[in-house]
Design a protein around this nucleic acid. Structure first.
Lengths: 217, 217
DNA sequence: TCGCTTTCGCTACGAGTCGTAGCGTAACTG
DNA sequence: CAGTTACGCTACGACTCGTAGCGAAAGCGA
């Protein structure tokens, strides 16, 4: 779901159909987003220019700017949909569920278009509060459902204690999400080393504890 | 320790003193790196231009390009030194040691100059193998000493089992490093939420296990 | 002291990108 | 059909890029 520039920014309207004049081409929207993903994979974040995207999409540069005010916003929308493919399976154990999601996430991060875009987006987000909000709304927060689903399933199995209160549970979801997402991103995008099943298993064991201390079975 | 362009790229020399002609100004080096850090804090990665850095450092643009071939390399050197301040304390318990390092790292990431630079550097590194190598050599790998020191101290206290073999130990250091660094980065730079002592404690507990299961005291 | 070498600051350059404005045309509504 | 909006196209000034050429400055060895 892209977030185009509102055709008429300040017009409360009846919020119903605002069909008046020539409607925006939905085909252009798709062509632009596809072109953005392709260009990202080929040229990376730095090599991506608005002019290039427009040409590749068969669209005038003006048309592009009419919908997305800058490269940042454009890329958020172009990338966000990539993350929708992540699903939380129910494999019968928390360990297996986490390993499966980690593997999915790692595979996603291995793709050129997400690799080129994600960290660059995050980097811009550190300076632009609005952009950071959009990143969270479009990319980060929707994926927290995975953690919530996994927790719920594990609680149903008795692997996890039920939530005591809402606030604590939310904080715990945040911590777990930051840990899984951050670690996999760091492994793949910074260290640049592959996420093998072996690594995934070890990481999950570390996450679920116990730490390999002598006294622990 | 900056990595300037070699004055005469291909000259084995006797590797001794290559003093011939006017030597490069060490003051210019310092002025450039200082200007880079300042400009990063003020303008962010995207706003940082080579011309701006040169002007601010009181140096000709040509002088800048003689030493660093691009913005990427310049920023690596300008930022790497920031990380040298991290130290692993010996507070008597692994929990306390990790909490202390997490707090230091979070404080470092909260500074504008590192915030603007780190993720952007990582982003560029995903497309440029040489840059990624330089980032690892200059920033990432040196900090793994913290994990090794913490492990050694914990082993001496009996909190951790001694290493069985070298390869496994190295992998474990990598996993722990990716987990701590990645999680804190994600919390501060992506989620954009503060690293409080409370959060640090909960994260460390999660890391050291056991996971808060019902049967665990 | 005098060359020799290298770096210095400065200026200027072509190439490329940015985001916007103006134009005439196309598409859709009442 | 008139009104409205989106469209493709062209052109624009402002900016950054990385490089080249210049004369002057700084250190070296003879």
């Amino acid at each position: 779901m892209p977030a185009p520039q509102p055709p008429v920014p300040e017009s409360p309207e009846t919020a119903a159909t605002r069909a008046k004049g020539r409607p925006r081409s939905a085909a252009a929207d798709r062509a632009i987003l596809d072109a953005t993903r392709e260009a990202l994979a080929e040229l990376g974040w730095g090599g991506l220019t608005m002019g290039h995207v427009a040409t590749r999409a068969g669209v005038a540069k003006t048309t592009l700017y009419r919908r997305w005010p800058s490269k940042n916003e454009l890329v958020v929308d172009a990338v966000a949909s990539l993350f929708d493919e992540l699903v939380m399976p129910d494999l019968g154990s928390l360990q297996a569920d986490i390993e499966a999601v980690v593997a999915q996430f790692a595979a996603l991060l291995a793709r050129p278009e997400s690799q080129a875009a994600l960290l660059a987006l995050f980097a811009e987000g550190t300076r632009d509060r609005q952009l950071r909000r959009r990143i969270r709304e479009a990319i980060v927060d929707p994926q927290k459902r995975l953690v919530r689903q996994g927790r719920t399933a594990a609680q149903a199995r008795g692997e996890l204690a039920p939530d005591l209160d809402e606030a604590t549970a939310r904080e715990e979801v945040d911590i777990i999400f930051d840990t899984i997402a951050g670690t996999v991103e760091h492994r793949v995008l910074v260290s640049g080393e592959p996420v093998t099943p072996e690594w995934t298993r070890r990481f999950t064991v570390l996450l679920l504890g116990p730490f390999p201390v002598p006294s622990a079975g």
